[in-house]
Amino acid sequence: MAVLGINARNLEYIYPENPRQNFPNIDDKLRAKDLLAANGLPIPATYHVVTGPESLRGWAKRIPADVDAFVLKPSRGFGGQGIGFVRRDDEGWSMSDAPPGSLYVEMHIKRIMNGAYSIDNIADAAILEHKLSNVEAIMRLLPNDVSGVADLRTIVHRDRVVMAMLRLPTARSGGKANLHQGGLGIGIDIDTGRTTLGCWRNRIVEKHPESQQPLSGHVIPGFDSILEMSRQIPELVGLGYVGVDFVLDSRLGPVIIEVNARPGLAIQLANGRGLRQVLRDASH
């Protein structure tokens, strides 16, 4: 059967190819960013890292004067938890989902430091980094009333990109691109870099469920460089089967935001084909 199930993914790819001791290379985002940057791969710029009371004091001074918004994320977070968006306003800085005022930004930083969002609930570092925005080609795919950043996931096995998918936030997902939370997945033909069809709530769709826009045939800008960067990741992080997440930024082009050691299987639905067959073809 061409479709890859969870059991087969774990037994045949993750356990044999992803040694546990290399997980910290990607679970710890600070480490991952260092590793990627050292090899010339694009990552969102880090403005500041808060690890204790010393670095918490005067955090605002570390944000460049020409920057109006940044992202606050836990270094050892998982599943997108604890990520906050901060913007400059009359009060100084404000969280997007809290009352105005820097006080709430500091509260969120402290929660991250206390490990509220870290994998094992132990003390964590808070990363203040550059906020990415969607490239024009992506903006065109989003309905007007939907905000949020889309991302692009590639599945890489050893040195070969086996599948790719674009993930769009929807009105229903509340700005999140995660498929479990109602994001729209769109398959991408690896050879042409064009979108094929979509998957929404485990169903195959050919039109955007909210804007009714056709989903196939859109060109992904910079797809060749996405493939090229993806191919380098497994060797770099020491894991043979990974998911690499990019944001197609309006100014920087494709930027790597995360590497995943247990990439999900819904990408198969978005591409209308099974991973197993693709992986087998790759190994022969």
């Binding site: 059991n7 084909r273 099974g274």
Partner: peptide, 18 residues
Amino acid sequence: AGFRLSEFIRFRHLLARS
């Protein structure tokens, strides 16, 4: 390494296509 029963439901559209 086979399918979990629930995956037949999750991937039913894909399986039907193949």
